[in-house]
């Protein structure tokens, strides 16, 4: 299968990428690693008029730890996150989850920023960043702004990112408290049928594939904060969610999975 015809612009700076987006209008797409976008283009589920390739921009890749904050350039690959000893020490949940995405070949090309901007509720990394209470830094024509991860995911494959904005950095707190990522799937390399990310012993809990967006499990977090046991806190994991029904599972089954996986994750994280 071959993507539809498309124009291609290789940006040599963030400013040039933003300018190219502004010029092309809302039919343009940013191309980073392309591990989500190219498959969609091949299926012609995505038919952008212009691709703005930011894949080789300098300065948007790498991990820096300053004080209590881990800053990760948006173009940092899953493979880099997975293998970073610094990240494993400062934020082991994120390093671990990066290693659970797809397969090694996908992780060599896929980027953290791309995964978040794609806003797929079935993706692993958005849940990790939500559970960690991360912040996304985006640049646009008027400068840069910060968006809390909890405000970033607005709908199915939709985010708060403007059509002429570029995600440049992801910031998460240093987080070495109890953590766990539970990913349930039935096929190698597949997306999670349901996943649960837990940070800081249950202070942050987020769900994968339990609705139209990646989402925090606020009820579970509140229960843990109130001193509930892992079993009791996990019992409310599916409350307020609208899990999808598809070939892998129906909504009720996903709700059940979310409770089981949340209990396991909270227990492993020491809640």
């Amino acid at each position: 299968m071959i993507p539809a015809a498309v124009d291609y612009v290789r940006a040599d700076s963030a400013e040039a990428a933003i300018a190219a987006l502004a010029e092309a209008g809302d039919e343009a797409k940013l191309l980073a690693g392309g591990q989500s976008l190219v498959p969609l283009m091949r299926l012609r589920l995505a038919t952008p008029s212009v691709l703005v390739d930011i894949g080789r921009l300098d300065g948007l890749s790498g991990i820096s730890i300053e004080g209590d904050t881990v800053g990760i350039g948006a173009l940092t690959t899953h493979s880099t996150l997975e293998h970073s000893a610094d990240l494993a020490a400062a934020c082991p949940l994120l390093a671990h989850v990066a290693g659970q995405v797809g397969d090694p070949a996908v992780r060599h090309r896929g980027t953290l920023g791309g995964s978040l901007a794609h806003a797929d509720p079935a993706s692993d990394l958005p849940a990790a960043v939500l559970a960690l209470g991360g912040t996304l830094v985006v640049a646009g024509p008027g400068g840069s702004r910060e968006i809390a991860a909890t405000d970033f995911f607005t709908g199915f494959l939709e985010s708060a990112l403007g059509a002429d904005e570029l995600l440049t950095e992801v910031r998460v707190p240093v987080s070495t408290g109890g953590w766990c990522y539970q990913k349930f799937n039935r096929r190698a390399q597949d997306w999670a049928i349901v996943g649960v990310a837990v940070a800081e012993g249950g202070a942050g809990v987020a769900l994968v594939n339990m609705g139209s967006t990646p989402m925090r499990a606020a009820g579970v977090e509140a229960a843990v904060a109130g001193g509930a046991s892992a079993v009791d806190a996990a019992a409310v994991a599916a409350d307020g969610t609208e899990p999808p029904t598809d070939n892998n599972a129906d909504g009720d089954y996903r709700a059940h999975l979310s409770r089981v996986l949340t209990e396991r994750a909270l227990t492993a994280a020491g809640a």
Binding site: P3, Q35, V38, P104, A105, H108, R109
Partner: peptide, 24 residues
């Protein structure tokens, strides 16, 4: 992007060549 029959090395690391544009 599932089967890996198209896997090549790009700068020494595996990549699925059906999931990359040549331009990239």
């Amino acid at each position: 992007s599932s089967c890996g029959a198209c896997t090549v090395l790009v700068d020494g690391r595996s990549a699925k060549s059906c999931t990359l544009l040549a331009a990239q």
